[in-house]
Design a protein around this nucleic acid. Structure first.
Lengths: 140, 140
DNA sequence: TTTTTAGATTAGAATTATTCTTGATGATAG
DNA sequence: CTATCATCAAGAATAATTCTAATCTAAAAA
């Protein structure tokens, strides 16, 4: 897990301007290592930075994705979730309550670097089912 | 891989009305066992059924997903792809040309039926990287 | 066969997530 | 300082999907 300073160094070295909104977004996702949406980040930052815009949030998240600081999780059919935990770990979505959680399970995903001539750079594993709470409530 | 007649039987038994547009959509996805979008199906059927509507395509695809006839593939961040090949197989997306392909690779995805109290019902594996064509073009 | 009716369909408006556009702003090199 | 160039904000635009309300139809009942 990378540190804020290290990340800022690296982005500066790549020629990015580390403007106030960008640092605010970076700091926010690093200090809340859970799942975010563009909107949840926007709302959270709106308080301290009342004139931040959605476009900036989207642009910065795209930048951070490109630079490997966050990961786009597409487990949900209608919005992208951003995860600042970028090591390979499966995600789970409950089909009853819709909750999305990390799954800390050492699956053996020895994905080869190359398959059928394709170079594999990233692997996403999404699990769907019913979460513990919903199972209890439903008695199943 | 299920047959059309068998599927229609099963859906009827479940109480669904097998109307003309529903059968047309079912038949289309079964006879073109590739990747579809709601829009591609709509356009293809528009020729034979000039007044079919997008709402019907979406509703029917949702129904067929619920009944396990097709699978929603969410490898692409901005649209859902429907796959009538519903056995567990990874999908690949080229980050250069955007092409999406099946990967016929026997990964050992022995996903347990239960993890951390969660019941796992479905597993999606998405691989991202560079396809053979793009590697050749780029010389990498 | 005709009637009935629950559920399905259509057209288009509405919604939601995301991207684009444009003019303003601000950091930085010279 | 000032010119340059990337970034920013605001809101319009777009794209995918869902909703709404009036109409239609498959299939059960008469």
């Amino acid at each position: 897990m990378m540190e804020e300073k290290e990340i800022i160094q690296r982005l500066k070295a790549k020629g990015y301007v580390l403007s106030m909104p960008r640092v605010a977004i970076l700091r926010y996702v690093l200090s809340h290592r859970t799942h975010h949406t563009a909107e949840s980040i926007f709302k959270a930052l709106k308080e301290d930075y009342p004139n931040i815009s959605m476009a900036t949030v989207y642009n910065t998240l795209k930048l951070l994705t490109r630079e490997g600081v966050v990961q786009q999780i597409m487990i949900d059919e209608n919005k992208v979730i951003y995860d600042s935990n970028t090591y390979l770990h499966p995600h789970f979505k409950c089909r009853v309550c819709g909750k999305i959680e990390d799954v800390n399970l050492p699956f053996n995903f020895q994905v080869p670097e190359e398959v059928d001539g394709k170079r594999i750079e990233d692997v996403h594993v999404y699990l769907y089912g019913i979460c513990e709470d919903c199972r209890k409530k439903l008695g199943i």
